[in-house]
């Protein structure tokens, strides 16, 4: 399956990665090769095969509704690149 530059740009936007023009071209070529390679799975007949979204046969894993100790705000914010009071701070959202 061919992957064009528009698709790459859209995918990069979805992944929130800024790509320079040269990166875009390089990635475009590499992804083209890789996708060409992975396309080999398309020749298999998988009509009646169940997808293995989990490889384990386990199910219904739940936990009891018992409270555990939370972090203090100081600890929670310890690694924050920017904070204000007890909040994490991020640049303004401009859509």
């Amino acid at each position: 399956m061919a992957i064009d530059n528009e698709t790459i740009k859209h995918v990069a936007h979805l992944a929130r990665i800024e790509l320079q023009q040269n990166e875009l071209e390089k990635l475009s070529n590499q992804l083209h090769d890789i996708i060409g390679f992975i396309d080999r799975i398309s020749k298999l007949d998988v009509e009646n095969i169940a997808p293995a979204s989990h490889i384990l046969p386990i199910s219904n894993v739940l936990r009891e509704d018992n409270p555990q100790v939370s972090l203090t705000p100081e600890k929670a914010l310890e690694n924050a690149p920017d904070k204000k009071g007890n909040f994490f701070s991020v640049p303004k959202i401009i859509e």
Binding site: T7, A15, I38, I41, S42, L44, I49, A50
Partner: peptide, 25 residues
């Protein structure tokens, strides 16, 4: 990028879902 592409609209069935099936095999 590759993973985002494999999950993206219009490609999910051809790549991700199919890959899960082959994983079963």
């Amino acid at each position: 990028m590759l993973g985002t592409f494999a999950l993206s609209h219009g490609y999910y069935d051809a790549y991700y879902l199919r890959a899960l099936k082959v994983r079963t095999l």
